[in-house]
Simulated scan of single mutants.
Amino acid sequence: MPDLIYKLCFYVPDTHLEQVKTAVFAAGAGHIGNYDCCAFQVRGEGQFRPLDGSQPFLGQQGEVEVVSEYRVETIVTEASLQAAISALRLAHPYEEPAIDLFRLEPLPA
């Protein structure tokens, strides 16, 4: 039975884009056939408001912060999933990075 494949999507500020991608790829994400470091990225704006008890990388508690960020999508096998997510969290500057995970269905033959 083939390994399950997931799409891993995360948001990262411009300043840490390459650092986080490198960590995720080193943990096994981004392989498609005979290629590695495969990803799609698009720039946009993210926003958040740090609440009491937070330790924000950017911004001040109680104030809305708008940040130029990238949305990065890559794929990862189930075997590499935990390592990729752990690497993402360790390399990411945010206390709570936004991460989406989608299980993919095999393509029809």
Rank of each mutant, 00 (worst) to 15 (best):
L90Q: 15
A23H: 04
E45R: 14
G33H: 08
F102P: 01
E96W: 06
N34L: 12
D100T: 10
C38Q: 03
E105F: 07
S68H: 12
I5P: 00
A84L: 03
E78L: 12
A98D: 01
E78H: 14
G28S: 09
V24F: 00
Q19D: 07
L101K: 09
P50G: 05
P108R: 12
L58Y: 13
A98E: 09
E105P: 00
A23I: 09
Y35V: 06
Y70F: 15
H31I: 15
G28H: 04
V12A: 02
R71S: 02
S86Y: 07
C38T: 09
S54F: 01
V76W: 08
A83F: 05
E73L: 08
E95Y: 04
V66E: 04
Q60C: 00
Q55D: 10
F10R: 04
G62P: 00
M1N: 11
R43N: 00
E96M: 11
I99T: 06
Q47K: 13
I85K: 03
A98T: 10
D52A: 15
D100K: 00
E63Q: 15
S54T: 15
A84G: 01
D3N: 15
P13V: 06
A91M: 08
G53W: 01
A83P: 03
F40Y: 13
Y11W: 12
V20I: 05
A39V: 02
F25P: 06
D14K: 15
G33R: 10
H92D: 03
C9E: 12
Q60A: 08
L81Q: 00
